[in-house]
Write a protein that binds this DNA or RNA. Structure first.
Length: 933
RNA sequence: GCGCGGUUAGCUCAGGGGUAGAGCACUUCCUUGACACGGAAGGGGUCAGAGGUUCAAUUCCUCUAUCGCGCACCA
């Protein structure tokens, strides 16, 4: 039994020691490159990583065997929000602090770095356990000094180009992480909520409330009414026209607010009158700007109601405040009704709390190089291809509707924005947000004078007169540079020259916008410089999108559900090869992956089968790749060579199409069904002549020995190819067997002599080779016919209840020549004493028989056994044959069919009819004789 | 609301105008000399539904149902 644990550790060390994974930029070989989607430094390996990285490893290992110089560049991502949250939580747990503010920025960052130093390498070590052949000498981290400089340089360049600007905008605010987010970091979740209809009393011309008159507004967020500054109606709405210009009383706040007309209001929705909360709703903010309304902030950045909300609500959580406002309005009789209402609520992808629209000063980027980034995918043929290609449409749609990217984050952990503001007496820190309050709105922030702002990679000389912007950049603002910032950009390094553009990118569709699209734009923006000498600056040529890993019930894997297995544990139990094989087997192109541990068990079983097949070969003695003598090839030898040829073709095609589950299926079929189930068994007739009756083999002793040697040579040829075909999927066991079988001893230097990693990828056998081996296509038919005979023979045995261990003699009344070698194989596989080939055989009455392509197969039994059972068997067969005959006849009796159908299809149906007619007649005949006898 | 993808054996999925496939699971049998993490033989499907094109549709077209995923400022 195969034990993977020791084997895997040993070979991984071997590969690393010999630098097998190291990419050489000066190599004359054509390049192949992948940059890893950098996992989060705080992360631990999960099934999604296994899927993603196994695919990358398969591609890289295949490329090496194709003779390419491979770079798989690994690294990790600093993951601003996640890492900061993890470290802060850890510090809180240790009782060091209650909030990071107590430590201050510098001290806190020291803790994060210490934490990173200690825990940041975990996932890298785990990737090694999986067998990933990354170039570890080139591992990168997005906060490496060189990488950080790239980020700053890019910021400065885009700023100077006028694409980066600062402005006061309504942004998506995460009240838990207390930072702005980009549009992409918000998930819209459908939720059952309510639509509350609130009555705002109308005021007369003297500012007195009219108890009998009011305007009714509908809202899903009643707590925001505390910050209302108007009620808006559509100017065309006849119901409200006479109210426009009047004022109403904002309840609870006892504040007069105007009724205004704005075309944004949809008269058909709700009551047609909208409460306007400029500080807490993006649409309302637009209206407020148009009408010069003031801005009242009632919800603070922490999601807690501010003093502006009034003393009854000050300090209350926004959700509590919602209840409190509803209760209060109910008490005052101002709640007209509450409707159930299903709507979409934005949630922070990071903190999973509802997003708060929040007005604040942030940095934005107008995306650069949009046109080439669109064109490279939309061109025909495209310069960059997506797999599956439907993602190209999603990409295009997003690219055609770009909105400026909010790149600043109110965090400490990350790349600090390289902008300094001149200290001015009245305004110590421009960066500090003013305390929330009521302030008049300006249309858009006026930019500060150029002399008061410093944007550069280096701080200003007179640093004491300047203060740096406190914010950091969105993590994706660093990772979008990954394909070139990891290779020495902005210098035109040898690495960039050799490996950029990279070949393939493997990632999940969930980060298509976050990462893939932005990398494409960054590639065009920063690699188009003539210094790089690129005809096309795209960062990669192919993007493969994996599915999302789910459990076998189809649920997303998550820590809280506890349905996510630990890959390391799986590797410990079954081996990395098994995990890889199982994962690939269940990962169809373009669909989610339903992971079932059973697949890993299957992978383990598969490895064990491979192990044992090789063991079988070893037991036969001799070692290593002998020459094949074409004249001595049996028809089964020829057959397996053809099957190998097909497997090579199909597997190579499946990999070129990134169809990994199909690739695994091809390997499975070839190795298990064809190689083991048939060929290995058939081999035994040549390898073990005494296993078959001596007369059946029909060979003289010395020619039997020669044939035996030849069969071993074929077996070695097939197995050595098989190991290579499997290597990208099962790197460890194939390396172990490659050496164990001695195949490495026969390889040219650097092409498989020290490691199977560099053994050439198998090529189809080709017409020349097939001719030399005398391999004829008709041996496929002969093999099929033999297989049919074996199945039917076993079937006869079983249905006539012959004990499995009882050696019987079958008789074949042949319809074609059956050479002694084939007879020996058939005898062996039938587990029979003999297979007599007798053209003039006269079966005793009631002899069970089956019609097969090779003739009529009989199982003569001593004395008549169960006649009734045999009758039943034949009757069943007859019934089936009659049904098939009728079906074929019906088709062929349709004149339209016979006239219009293509000749080969007609022929097929005619053959089918003949075949089943013969079977029917045989069964009928046998039944007749049985009954009469 | 718009767009995309799916609906095929108990399960997970291939397939593709010309007798429905694989693996797993299931039933029965077998420790025979590579392997019980194995071998042998079986059972099991109106290919979601309704129309249309065709000699022929599970496959192509239209519509419906249903599930999933994107995108969308309707309070």
């Amino acid at each position: 039994m195969y034990e993977p644990q020791a084997v895997e550790a040993r070979w991984y060390e071997f590969w690393c020691e010999r630098g097998c994974f190291t990419a050489d930029p000066h190599s004359p070989k054509p390049s192949y490159a992948i940059v890893i989607p950098p996992p989060n430094v705080t992360g631990v390996l999960h099934m999604g990583h296994v899927l993603n990285n196994t695919i990358q490893d398969i591609l890289c290992r295949k490329a090496r065997m194709d003779g390419r110089e491979v770079l798989w560049l690994p690294g990790t991502d600093h993951a601003g929000i996640a890492t900061q949250a993890v470290v802060e939580k850890a510090l809180r747990k240790q009782g060091v602090i209650k909030h990071r503010d107590e430590l201050g920025r510098d001290k806190f960052l020291e803790h994060v770095w210490a934490w990173k130093q200690k825990n940041g390498g975990i996932i890298i070590q785990q990737l090694k356990k999986l067998g990933c052949s990354c170039d570890w000498s080139r591992e990168r981290f997005t906060m490496d000094p060189a990488y950080s400089t790239c980020v700053q340089r890019v910021f400065v360049a885009l700023y100077r180009k006028g694409l980066i600007y600062r402005g006061k905008r309504m942004v998506h605010w995460d009240p838990a992480a207390r930072t702005a987010l980009s549009d992409e970091e918000v998930d819209m979740v459908e939720e059952k909520g309510h639509l509350w209809h609130l009555k705002y009393p109308l005021l007369d011309e003297h500012g007195q409330p009219r108890p009998d008159q009011w305007v009714v507004v509908a809202t899903t967020r009643p707590e925001t009414m505390l910050g209302d500054e108007a009620v808006a109606v559509n100017p065309e709405d006849p119901r409200y026209q006479k109210l426009v210009g009047r004022r109403c009383l904002l309840p609870l706040q006892n504040k007069a607010i105007p009724i205004i007309a704005d075309p944004l209001v949809d008269p058909k929705f709700g009551t047609g009158a909208v409460k306007v909360t400029p500080a807490h709703d993006p649409a309302d903010y637009e209206i407020a700007i148009r009408h010069g309304l003031p801005l009242t902030v009632v919800i603070g950045p922490d999601g807690v109601m501010t003093a502006q909300a009034g003393e009854d609500f000050d300090g209350m959580d926004r959700m509590e405040a919602r209840q409190a406002v509803v209760e209060e309005l109910t008490g005052q009789g101002l709640l007209l009704k509450t409707e159930d209402y299903v709507h979409n609520v934005g949630y922070s992808q990071r903190s999973h709390v509802p997003i708060e629209p929040y007005l604040s000063e942030q940095w934005f980027l107008k995306y650069p190089s949009v046109e080439p980034a669109i064109a490279c995918v939309e061109n025909s043929p495209p310069h960059m291809r997506f797999f599956p290609d439907r993602w190209a449409r999603t990409y295009s749609h997003w690219m055609h509707h770009l909105r400026d990217w909010c790149i600043s984050r109110q965090l400490w952990w990350g790349h600090r924005i390289p902008v300094w503001y001149r200290r001015t007496p009245g305004r110590e820190s421009r960066a500090a947000e003013g305390t929330p309050g009521r302030e008049p709105l300006r249309p858009r922030d006026a930019a500060p004078a150029a002399a008061d702002i410093w944007c550069d990679v280096t701080p200003p000389q007179d640093a004491e007169h300047w203060v740096q912007d406190p914010d950091v950049l969105d993590t994706w603002f660093s990772s979008w540079l990954w394909p070139f910032a990891t290779m020495g950009w902005p210098e035109a390094t040898d690495m960039l020259r050799k490996f950029y553009p990279t070949t393939d990118l493997v990632t999940g569709p969930d980060i298509l916008f976050f990462w893939v699209a932005r990398m494409i734009m960054a590639g065009y923006e920063f690699m188009s410089d003539p210094r790089f000498g690129l005809a096309d600056a795209l960062p990669f040529r192919n993007v493969y999108f994996t599915g999302i890993i789910r459990d076998k019930l189809g649920r997303k894997m998550s820590k809280s559900l506890g349905n996510s297995p630990d890959p390391l544990e799986l590797i410990g139990r079954y081996g990395a090869d098994a995990l890889r094989f199982g994962t690939m087997r269940s990962a169809p192109l373009g669909q989610d992956v339903l992971f079932d541990e059973n697949d890993v068990v299957l992978g383990r079983n598969f490895c064990n089968k491979l192990w044992n097949a090789c063991r079988f070969r070893q037991i036969q003695g001799g070692r290593g790749l002998g020459g094949i003598v074409p004249d001595l090839l049996t028809r089964d030898d020829q057959w397996i060579l053809l099957r190998l040829d097909r497997a090579i073709r199909e597997l190579t095609g499946a990999l070129a199409a990134y169809n990994f589950s199909e690739a695994v299926q091809i390997l499975y079929r070839f190795f298990w069904s064809e190689c083991c189930d048939w060929y290995l068994e058939a081999c035994k007739a040549s390898l073990n002549p005494e296993a078959a009756p001596p007369d059946a083999a029909g060979d003289a002793p010395d020619s039997a020995a020669a044939r035996r040697a030849n069969t071993l040579a074929v077996l070695d040829f097939v197995l050595s190819h098989t190991l290579r075909l499997f290597h990208p999927f099962l790197p460890f066991i194939t390396e172990e067997l490659w050496h164990g079988m001695g195949y490495h001893e026969h390889q040219p230097p650097g092409q498989g002599d020290t490691t199977i990693m560099f053994a050439p990828w198998p090529q189809p056998l080709g017409p020349g080779m097939l001719e030399r081996f005398g391999v004829l296509q008709d041996c496929l038919e002969v093999a099929e016919a033999k297989q049919e005979l074996v199945v039917q023979g076993r079937n006869l045995r079983r249905e006539t209840h012959v004990a499995p261990n009882r050696k019987v003699t079958f008789v074949l009344k042949p319809s074609m020549d059956v050479p002694p070698q084939d007879r020996a194989v058939l005898t062996l596989l039938l587990n029979a004493a003999a297979l007599d080939v007798d053209p003039s055989f006269q079966p005793p009455k009631g002899t069970p028989s089956a019609r097969v392509r090779l003739g009529e197969l009989y199982l003569p039994l001593d004395g008549l056994i169960d006649v009734a059972a045999e009758q039943a068997r034949l009757a069943k067969e007859l019934g089936r044959a009659e049904a098939e005959v009728a079906k074929a006849q019906q088709k062929l009796s349709n004149p339209a069919f016979v006239q219009k159908v293509p000749p080969h299809v007609l022929q097929e149906h005619q053959n089918r009819l003949a075949d089943w007619t013969a079977k029917r007649d045989q069964a009928r005949h046998a039944l007749d004789r049985l009954t009469r006898g």
